[in-house]
Design a protein around this nucleic acid. Sequence first.
DNA 1: AGACTGCGTTCCGTCGAGCGCAACAGCACC
DNA 2: GGTGCTGTTGCGCTCGACGGAACGCAGTCT
Lengths: 271, 271
Amino acid sequence: MSDVVELPEQVGATGGSTAVTGAGVQSVDRALGILEVLARTGESGVTELAVELGVHKSTAFRLVATLEAHRLVEQTSDRGRYRLGMGILRLAGATTARLDLVQEARPISRQLAADTGETVNIAVLAESSALYLDQVAGSSALQPHNWVGQHIPLHATSNGKVLLSGLDEQALDSALGKLASYTSHTITSRGKFRDELARVREQGYAVAVDELEVGLTAVAAPIRNAHGDVVASMSVSGPSFRLPEDRVAEVVRLVVGAAAEVSHRLGWGHR
Amino acid sequence: MSDVVELPEQVGATGGSTAVTGAGVQSVDRALGILEVLARTGESGVTELAVELGVHKSTAFRLVATLEAHRLVEQTSDRGRYRLGMGILRLAGATTARLDLVQEARPISRQLAADTGETVNIAVLAESSALYLDQVAGSSALQPHNWVGQHIPLHATSNGKVLLSGLDEQALDSALGKLASYTSHTITSRGKFRDELARVREQGYAVAVDELEVGLTAVAAPIRNAHGDVVASMSVSGPSFRLPEDRVAEVVRLVVGAAAEVSHRLGWGHR
DNA sequence: AGACTGCGTTCCGTCGAGCGCAACAGCACC
DNA sequence: GGTGCTGTTGCGCTCGACGGAACGCAGTCT
């Protein structure tokens, strides 16, 4: 079913001359390379980009100017460096808006955010990290931190645990790299983490307290498609002082219910 | 023979289509055009894209294949149509961190302040009050005090009304406390206030005359994100003697236009 | 001050990359 | 089978993208 798309090379080595060349139309390839470089560095000058791509300054400039015309990049000042622009967000909005998952989940996310007063996220598994698709801010506070599009470590988040709990042994091994430590509460032992996943599978939800960041508590539950596969994860997260142990129990109930509702809308459990 | 009607060669000056083609590197321009078409349609075939761009099928195919190599687009099935891919979201993740509402709105706020000669404010919903994020002073020498960072009651301001108009019944109830009276014009009846919100929703803007403070008139319009949610409010405010009824109508037009422009930059209503 | 070095930006001649063409391979509906 | 549509692929020709060099502008070293 999955088509085996082989793309020549995706040189991922960090540092040094990182050629991000794929194959296809040369100039487009280079232009997209610029976007990827900017995504990595956050901000770069024309000359810097030219070196990174291995092209002449003027070439890099023309490409970046074209990207700017489409608002995919913008320059910090009138004669300054370049960074990714708002056009990207517009495209991203169009991307998620078309995903039936996000579409179906959004009203329920909103309801969950209203009920709990905390932030709700939807995440999927993408290349050994969690990719956040959508976020609805809680009633309290303004947008805490927009994680949409961010890649988050799998073993230190409630969403990650849920997503991993849907994998078999083999897929788990390939998705799970080294268990980096973020706080003193992060699970770094592979054995302990397997136990944790077993618990998640059994009880149908995951909790992470201070594991990614001290003071951050999150609860997540699986979203399943018609086949019963775990396709996404829905979480509620907020500052630990607002989510004490007794309140977590209540939140768990709400999250599990909401995730089940989304799963149902996606066709899970129909006859 | 040729199934497709060939175009009158060299479509130099952005012919009839909705293409946003500025100037720059041609192939990149076209590739980005494809992304925009996909953002608008959600899903398109190669032939369809070719027609939209005014190029040959094979050209469109090569471009879309290059985009696919970078994961910016993906095809629905093995030999099917194309849609925006996850790569966009990855790029978006690197974007959101740096670009926020205020930054995007500032040039437009400034223009609005210049056009009206009055003070422009940007506010968001926080807890159960309006939080002012940014302010651009009007040309008039008489300047009100700086409201940035201030929490302002929701029911007695144009910004507050706009922000509340984006909430559903339940969220509205929790955000709306007691309707304190500030002047004789303040709306203190819950029923009347609901009617007012309905009017705001319908006409797409809110007005407040002497409701928070006697002699203060304000007009506000909603700023929406890619999903259509009201994320902020933009207002023009000034002394009532400078904003008589007939001038308010003109200001309304300007504020609504400016807010729509900001919304558009945030990804709302992809053309 | 003046020279120098870096930046982003512009102009221009040249040559190869990207274009349109036409033919191919599946699929779906007569 | 026929006929219409897809997406896909070689192949020559040509025009568009490329790199070199020069420009305007800001800092910085001497």
